[in-house]
Design a protein around this nucleic acid. Structure first.
Lengths: 236, 236
DNA sequence: CGTATCGTTGAAATATATCAATCGCAGTGG
DNA sequence: CCACTGCGATTGATATATTTCAACGATACG
């Protein structure tokens, strides 16, 4: 694994630790020394992965849960002949690799140099067993993933190439509602494998959206959304 | 809602009630009178829905969880112009309509005359708050749904029409590993909207699989799998 | 037994894929 | 600093899988 284990995190406040795995800190309070110990165990180690480095593989033991600190991650499945379907992209702040079962059901790779925090699943589980709020937060996270997958199903099953690209850009744009400039950490191939298209079709669609005045490209990894409304309408 | 509320269930054993919502009965035991009361509340009312009757709609309050007793259910999303993507089919024994959040994110309809058991979500939640095993079972159920969705994404994004139909039949066939006869409760349109195809393509693929000797059709709702291996191979 | 709905088949249209060539930028070494 | 190199992106021409449009057939239902 082409990753380097960085120094352990230095935070000590349990609320910070819990926020760092996506659990609202107001929902739990420090009530005992055990919780303090738990907090230390919960705090993730930081790791960095190079571009295209594997973070975990499909059907590997899911002993860790990850949170993107910086960079971007793709999760995907492969068919035996190499066809790839990307399930989701995970950007800064996103959790990934959380499984209810013992094994990962998708593989995960860093899209670019990526820093993540790593949490022991066993610690989350034991914490959840004692703190109902934590258990519910884990469930809610899986439910969020499911919701995204269901939206993705609609995109793949029933939308045209143009609608897929527009939906994708719209969704990315909504992560920064103020900014109209979208940075694309992923390649055209990654987008194609996420959208169920080929690179050529993705590329052609970008240039068409550009000539229609909906977006403008400044280098292939930087999109300026000139007409957010049009993009939303094209998303169907 | 074209459904009739049947007489309340008559079971009283809490283990039966818990098994009926998909929680391994061995993991919990009756320890108090409260549990007994809980069991009564848990036990679902039986309801029947006519063909094409709506069970719940997208973004409706998710106050109930359902289990198919007999018949079949489709869950789906619609685009504003009427395009439909079916998320999943639920057959006898399957749970559906379970949400971590307050609202349903898909609509559900009976495919044929269908009997379901209905459970109050609030009861499940309060039980889960006290019984970690129940909470984990709910999470596991959502995780199962997510896993199915991820497989479905692969199908829609990267498989050919023939591979989609073969995958679909294979998966249905695996529900009855012994029997080689598959009953299709759903129409060609339902299959098309599940597989991201048109009815014509589904129909043509069926006839092609038949002329290739992989399946044989006895009436359009009954498929005899003549060559399970070939079907699996065609599923990619 | 008639009628409506669903499924099948055919022919033509089209969106997207495939194959192939060129472009352009980022990194590298002279 | 500039040319060289290589990979990713774009563009073009062509192929093709699937859709669309249309007619016909079968099946279930009243």
């Amino acid at each position: 694994m082409s990753a380097q284990l960085a120094s352990n995190a230095i935070m000590f406040d349990i609320r910070t630790a819990k926020r760092s795995i996506g659990i609202a800190p107001t929902q739990t309070t420090v009530t005992s020394i055990d919780d303090g110990v738990e907090a230390m165990e919960m705090m993730g180690a930081r790791m960095t992965f190079d571009r295209d480095a594997e973070i975990f593989g499909e059907s590997e033991a899911a002993d860790f849960v990850y949170r993107v600190v910086s960079g971007a991650v793709r999760t995907y499945k492969l068919l035996s002949d190499g066809r790839r379907q990307i399930g989701d992209f995970h950007l800064a702040g996103d959790l990934f690799g959380l499984e209810a079962g013992a094994e990962h059901r998708l593989s995960a790779e860093a899209i670019c140099k990526t820093e993540v925090m790593v949490f022991r699943r066993a610690n989350l589980f034991s914490l959840a067993a004692r703190t109902p709020a934590v258990g519910r937060a884990l469930w809610a996270e899986t439910a969020r993933e499911l919701e995204r997958a269901q939206t993705h199903l609609m995109l793949l099953g029933r939308k045209s190439a143009c609608e897929r690209v527009a939906s994708f850009l719209s969704a990315l744009g909504e992560r920064e509602p103020k900014a109209s400039e979208i940075a694309l950490p992923m390649s055209r191939q990654d987008m194609a494998d996420y959208l169920g298209l080929t690179i050529e079709t993705v590329s052609r669609t970008f240039t068409q959206l550009q000539s229609d005045g909906v977006i403008s490209l400044s280098g292939c990894r930087r999109v300026h959304v000139k007409n957010r409304g049009a993009l939303a309408r094209l998303s169907a």
